[in-house]
């Protein structure tokens, strides 16, 4: 097989079949992986969750993961946040002509590994090849379906005054990792992406208590954006305690250099959990036992004071409004 993806690999003929066999089937093989037009599987009674997400990330490979791992985690975590055990995924690839075959293989391998860890089966896929320059390397879209655990019902609208706000770990690592990997500002720091599949984490929490109001994964806009969405959806206020928010030192350092707010840096393996205060410590204890949430912490509370706003108790003991993010993150120098 060629060492780079060519337009012929996307033409639907012999070379397409070869690409699918050698790369995708080799990694995604399971009895349900379809050779037909659609995957067929039995469905149990109960509620299902269904979600889709597209992934473009530059660079496609970064410390702590790659676009393949990200594409599995993203959809798995979206399902998990609804209390759904991820069952089946589909994935669609748009590959730039000339993309190295060994890199594609590496992406498929990490998708296989991550899917196995999350307990989800890849049951259908699609491959297109776009001409040089029409896409940036590789775009992946995944869709997934999962079965919602009985008794679990979460939504941003369910946050109530008296709830505690928990994050499952230190924040901003994925965004910081990508920023450093682009190497636009000549900054070096030991930061790896937090990208991780979190169904196991949600399962452990919902084993402990099903009285959880909100579970959200903080992706693109970071924890701050999620909290503003929850405040708006629920009409409650959210009060954060600045000094309780876990941020890795090196992430703080990078943010200091560029004038960025860690609350608005992307995460790919962090949950924001909102639950009645009486369960908060128990949930944190459970989270600390799980592989991706040892640094879980209670960072705030839901209040009736400032509907729709997120506030922050500062190091002076005063309370201020958390500023909202404004579009593109631009480093602030002067």
């Amino acid at each position: 097989m060629n060492d780079r993806v060519s337009l012929a690999h996307g033409a639907g003929g012999k070379q397409t079949a070869e690409l699918i066999d050698k790369v995708f089937k080799a990694h995604f093989s399971n009895p349900l992986f379809t050779a037909d037009d659609a995957a067929v599987f039995p469905v149990e009674a109960g509620k299902m969750a269904f979600s889709t997400d597209g992934f473009i990330v530059s660079p496609a490979f970064f410390p702590g993961g790659n676009i393949g791992k990200l594409s599995i985690c993203g959809t798995v975590n979206d399902l998990a946040c609804m209390g759904a055990e991820p069952l089946y995924l589909t994935c669609a690839f748009v590959i730039e002509e000339g993309f190295p075959m060994d890199k594609l293989e590496e992406v498929a391998a990490s998708m296989e590994k991550t899917a196995a860890e999350a307990g989800v089966k890849i049951v259908a896929g699609d491959t297109k090849v776009a001409g040089k320059g029409q896409v940036d390397g590789l775009f992946i879209t995944t869709a997934g379906i999962g079965r919602i655990r009985d008794g679990v019902s979460t939504s941003g609208a369910f946050a109530k005054p008296g709830d505690a706000v928990i994050v499952s770990g230190d924040i901003g690592r994925h965004g910081c990792t990508i920023l450093l990997a682009r190497d636009e500002f000549g900054i070096d720091a030991q930061v790896t992406s937090d990208c991780a599949p979190l169904w196991g984490t949600v399962k452990a929490m919902t084993d402990a208590t099903q009285d959880i109001h909100v579970i959200r994964d903080a992706t693109r806009g970071g924890v701050g954006t999620v909290l503003y969405e929850v405040a708006e959806q629920s009409g409650a206020g959210i009060r954060l305690f600045a000094e309780d928010i876990p941020v890795q030192d090196s992430v703080k350092g990078v943010c200091g250099m560029l004038g960025l707010e860690p609350l608005y840096l992307a995460c790919e393996g962090r949950l924001v959990i909102i639950a009645p205060k009486e369960h908060a410590q128990e949930l944190v204890d459970v989270l600390k036992q799980c592989p991706y949430s040892q640094d879980a912490a209670i960072i705030g509370e839901v209040t009736g004071d400032m509907p729709g706003r997120v506030t922050m108790v500062t190091e002076l003991g005063t309370e201020t409004i958390l500023s909202r993010p404004t579009g593109e993150l631009l480093p602030r120098i002067c």
Binding site: G186, I187, D188, A189, Q190, D249, S250, G256, M257
Partner: peptide
Amino acid sequence: DASGAQKE
């Protein structure tokens, strides 16, 4: 070095 972030 600022908290582990290094820059020339």
